[in-house]
Write a protein that binds this DNA or RNA. Sequence first.
DNA 1: GCAATAGTGTCTATAAGACACTATCAT
DNA 2: ATGATAGTGTCTTATAGACACTATTGC
Lengths: 258, 258
Amino acid sequence: MNEEEKEQENYNAKKYRTPDGVPADIVMLTLTKRERKTVTKTLPIRELKVMLIRRKSWPYAGMWALPGGFCQESESIYGAAKRELKEETGVDGGHLEYLGVYSTPGRDPRGWIISNAFFALVEESTLEQRQAADDAEEVGMFGIHEALDQLELAFDHREIIRDAYVRIQQKMLQTTIAKQFLPKHFTLSELYQVIQTVVPEFKEPNFIRKITSTRSRQGILEEVRDEMGKKLSSNQYSQRSAQLYMFTDEIPLLSIYT
Amino acid sequence: MNEEEKEQENYNAKKYRTPDGVPADIVMLTLTKRERKTVTKTLPIRELKVMLIRRKSWPYAGMWALPGGFCQESESIYGAAKRELKEETGVDGGHLEYLGVYSTPGRDPRGWIISNAFFALVEESTLEQRQAADDAEEVGMFGIHEALDQLELAFDHREIIRDAYVRIQQKMLQTTIAKQFLPKHFTLSELYQVIQTVVPEFKEPNFIRKITSTRSRQGILEEVRDEMGKKLSSNQYSQRSAQLYMFTDEIPLLSIYT
DNA sequence: GCAATAGTGTCTATAAGACACTATCAT
DNA sequence: ATGATAGTGTCTTATAGACACTATTGC
């Protein structure tokens, strides 16, 4: 036995009190799309919703909580979150992003439990299926404000959802994450509506003009064309058909000084 | 004993394998300032440095590692990071921010150890004292690129430092974090130099003009004035004295669409 | 006076912001 | 034709970007 092995032998991982578990909790968000019943074509009503599960056992039995599960030794926390997302929605891909760690002493009456929160952006249809299929668990979809202001939430999940909301608002404005809530090809009105749904403060009366006439911003979007190079448009949501756009892979660098 | 208490009794936190520890590791960064020995006054040379500690025992004995320590049950992880920072530098305040969780299986040969990384921005003088005072531990200050490209680092600390570097570059451009590296009152050349030191790609030939003549950016800075309302300037780093500025509390909202 | 850094003048191209106007198309 | 949404014309003001110029001050 060499020096290193001796030292290793000597090390005792259980000398100290260790945590009782490290779960990954997931804020699953979706943007619902409800057709308006008007005479003419019009954009659907969109709403940002969060998926919650009603707890059946102690602690916080009967209260709404984020889906989640304990991380195992053989996986990373991101891996655990991915596994949970798959188990909950059946979806493998989609946007899954780390949010933060929640470790205030006493946050979980079961013991010393340190939660790592994620947020996921999933298709509305996925969550609807999930909601219908599973009768073992009571699954609910709530408007983000309803969840934050009116629901009794388990653990510190209100705080987690609030943080996720702040984060997604920031991401919506500073990255092209909007693409997670849009089809591959979309009109500028659709894009504008999606941004406004997530960030109601975002007001840009000249939105179309600005996107199309400003060089620096043109880079993030690209007009959709067919094989002949002809611009494609859609009249799904309006009488007059509108130019379709898609996101490029540009990632603009923002600065408060430039 | 009521229902809830019975359920609680029933719960066994140690049914599953639990982590062997959840440490907080801290990427302590500082911007060193070294006077140039030139004939005339000039800005000092600045460099972004990271503090590392040489490990004395298994695992990774002899290699450089981030300072850190295990979180205790009675504190949050942020609390643990704060405590560590205090122990390492003697400083209580300063900028301390959560970076992320590192949990790849096998990242720590001692067992199932999930690290939460932070980054701290501290005064150069603080770290220098620390470096001189402590002879129990070998403390080193390394240029960020030296640390990333040339040092043998313990655990996954190279990855953590890289992530911290990316994060601080982003923060430098998108927030007023530059104030952590500047005195309360500073000249625009100083500010520009600090930004460039952390983000060498940042090039703005008309920096002074832009800051002073653009309404939207004026909000984040304010001219320093004396009691009489007269503008204050400093010639510490130049022959001709330059206007002093300070940050306001404005937090500009950036968007790729606006 | 010279060298070094701070800061301005000025010109052109681009972008923002407002608002009226035209275009397209289902009904 | 009407009404609804898409998109343009046009004018004013603000900002970007370049580069030469002036200002201040230690040496």
